[in-house]
Amino acid sequence: MDKIITSRRSMVGIAGVSVLSAAAIGVLGNVPALARARGKRPGVAAHQGDIDILNVALGLEHEAIEAYQIGAESGLLEKGVLDLALLFQGQHKGHRDALAGAVRQLGGTPVNAKNRADYMVSLNIAAIHNQTDILRLAQAHERGAANAYIGVMPSLGGRDLAQVCAKIAADEAAHWSLLTSALGDKLPGPAFMFG
């Protein structure tokens, strides 16, 4: 735990810088190009594949937001770690808003978050007993999310949407890196840590 606390101090200092990226991501919800990208094919049906993929991603963001909320309310996090969790949660809210905006622009309906009880089961919150457990859960989620965004890019209909996903994946990768550092884990040696 000492290692985590030491790493956390430097981590919090770094994290403050990334507020700008949250603001930038929030703007993505107003990019008209998302809807124009496949404009030659009329109707919602032309975008249904993209809508479905973005809604899956939105579900992932809902889950991340709730996971950080559960962690924040747990009483297990030290002040600095709590601040970081809330910062990451705010960025996931930015992703949520961008994805929901994109879904609407494509003519779809954004999926809603599930209720707390569902997330308690699906995230196996019963297994969480301390701060390290929470950091491990967040670390796994962020890595999976970065890989998920990278993995859906070839399936998207336009480069604009792929760029949105790339920007979000970069945020998730940054979160993973900071959490990995906080936990004292070694970073992988080879290139292509994600995807």
Binding site: L60, V121, S122, N124, H141, G144, A145, N147, A148
Partner: peptide, 12 residues
């Protein structure tokens, strides 16, 4: 764990 685990679990 790294690629599927963001959306899937074994038992939930």
């Amino acid at each position: 764990a790294a690629n599927c685990g963001s959306c899937h679990s074994l038992d939930a």
